[in-house]
Design a protein around this nucleic acid. Structure first.
Lengths: 143, 143
DNA sequence: GGTAATTCCTACTAATCCGGTAAGTTTTAG
DNA sequence: CTAAAACTTACCGGATTAGTAGGAATTACC
């Protein structure tokens, strides 16, 4: 029940790009250097963000990545959903992909749905701009 | 970011024992049969619950397992914490076990702490008795 | 005291995912 | 033409998951 490095690094990339949101393309070398993360590994993560339309990329010299929206228009939830896959705590909630044969007799399903809702509501309410601002106290985000 | 079968099966065992809470010891064969889960695999899960003091066990003929408290006195949170390990979404929150060197500069730490709090609060408010009752609608649990 | 039922303990295994690394191809600016 | 950058594919060691297998210890009952 842990968020992996993929999701955490993706947030760091998005925060980094929000802090260097000049309109220029930022090469991955710069991001990897600042964040002290392997550039090669970041490639695969940034690729997901790019394919999902969260980033624009430009190849070749002078190329790199930049945000496609304003930092306040990205929720933490959507970044994590793209990199981690669904945030559903159990696969049964990922309909219609997974249909559990026990669903009709399962006594825990509603509890899991409630947990899922609570998590998504919380993460939907926080933006990349909020994280980049870094003026937060614990609990500030609770809606 | 998924709850594994360990945690889910543990809840089913606890619900099953709550529904057969006569004071007798219930053999694992009965539970495994009703729940249609491999008895051998359940052994390792029930062992955790027993070692944590959530269940009493009796070996030998006529033996089995039974609850040590009333069903309403077990929160879903504590059952999951014992079987899944900490529910913290990132290891950095498991202090003092893990101390991240980036903690002082991390822009996401407070956000993760907030997610952790939201999850724990929600799961603390639901008991095994609630699950066994099974009279719930989605959202009933939200505190 | 023997037997059957039961928990308890240790070891093994196949499959999957995580966190990368390596090597090369394609595109672009200057 | 060259250098810098994104993109693509393949590989790999370690950890975890979801079990299986086999046996040892304990207890009730006849």
């Amino acid at each position: 029940m842990k968020i992996s490095t993929r999701g955490r690094y993706a947030l760091r990339v998005m925060i980094d790009l929000a802090e260097h949101n000049s309109g220029d393309y930022i090469p991955l070398t710069d991001i990897a250097g600042r964040q002290e993360i392997s550039e090669k590994y970041l490639e695969s993560i940034v690729s997901m963000l790019s394919k999902s339309g969260f980033l624009m990329s430009l190849r070749g010299k002078g190329g790199g990545y930049r945000l496609t929206r304003l930092p306040e228009e990205y929720s933490v939830r959507e970044i994590l959903e793209v990199t981690e896959g669904s945030l559903a705590p159990i696969a049964c909630l990922e309909q219609p992909t997974n249909t559990c044969p026990r669903a009709s007799v399962c006594k825990s399903l509603d509890m899991w749905q409630g947990l899922y809702d609570v998590m998504r509501d919380y993460l939907s309410g926080i933006s990349i701009a909020d994280l980049a601002a870094d003026t937060m106290e614990p609990g500030n985000f609770i809606i």
